[in-house]
Design a protein around this nucleic acid. Sequence first.
DNA 1: TCTGGGGTCCTAGGACCC
DNA 2: TCTGGGGTCCTAGGACCC
Length: 424
Amino acid sequence: MEYIGLIDCNNFYASCERLFNPALNGKPVVVLSNNDGCVVARSNEAKALGVPMGAPVFKYRELLQKHQVQIFSSNYALYGDLSARVMKVIASEAPSMEVYSIDEAFVDLSKVPEDQIALFCDHLRQKIFKWVGIPVSIGVGRTKTLAKVASAIAKKYPQLNGVHFLKNEALEKKALQWLPIEDVWGIGRKLTKKFKYYGVNHAADLLQLSNYTIRKEGAIDSVRVKEELMGNRCYDIENQPSQKKSIASTRTFYKMVTDKEELLSRIADFSVICGEKLRREGTCAFEVKVFIATNRNRKDLPQYYRSAYYRFLSATDNTMLISSTVSTLIEEIFVDGYQYKKAGVIVSNFVNKNELQMDLFTAGSPLDYDALFKAWDRLNETMGNGTVRLGRQRKHLISQKMRSPRYSTRWSELLPIGTEKQSE
DNA sequence: TCTGGGGTCCTAGGACCC
DNA sequence: TCTGGGGTCCTAGGACCC
């Protein structure tokens, strides 16, 4: 039998904050989204207080204060760096792996003898904790979906010491009878509702539903989920990262925007970010799309959403071209009088930069700009973001009042240690 | 007053072709 | 005046993930 393991960092962002600030151990910790708008990560203690994932901060302020929950703005420089370290340790033990998200990785365990899998997982878990300091859970099963099930159990029951191995049918069966249908990987809110109508309350119940019924409910993906739960592999480990199909930069604004010029300047930021991401990936885009939207949660205000896109004759990673195209599109879709809350730029339809086809009609090939953007990217990298920027961009304040220091990626923010007293 | 951001895949329906 | 049927491609929107 061949097995797949899922390594999953426990409460990843909260654990990252704790790593550099051990005083937080045992205390409830939450990490907030971009504008400090809602909760995106919670320590076990915070979960126990009943703070849900995605909770809007303003609705939970009282609860957070009452229990002295430690609140942090998100610090992606720190989380990204620690994630890379965790992945490196995993790769050192399990060369055939797939980085699935910032805090999860699948590993191929087909080369590990079955009777040593539990030992292997235990060793890996300890090594990650010792080398990086992040606690993880590991689930093992015959498929990715079963590995996910196992890791949910490993997290739930501390007496398992962070590892659960579905090594026989009896354990699989027990696991599927235990796992609520809404916690199955690939079954979200809408599908849960549909399946519950058929009396499906746990993962095991899904196996009783015919493929015909599942399809009839328009849930072709769930047929695969069911197969995977039965031990039939539908998803393999993807060893190399696949090429991205789209790159986006979108934001919810701290305050609603009514002025077109202000909106244009905000959106210029997004175009610039997309350009930088494209160049980092070594790819060029044929298509750019922009959208603007009002606040959906404000039922009392008039609503508006529109998007527009443009297809280039030849693919590009030129920030200026993307930005001016986007500005033209905004002129088409902007309507005065609405309070805009969210906007974004999305580029797609990529070709590798070294496979670019030149077209005869556009003046200047993308390669003509190479030197300019190399300098642009280098300056921003070494001297700080925004050192080089478009005239249209302004300095925008994003609310991040409670961000911890970037301990591991900025010299100036290193954690001071030592026996001498810090001078003022 | 304050409700994340960045992705993927699937489907229905329109446009278009012969 | 009559006004088919089958196919493909594309896009918007929905559902899901972390």
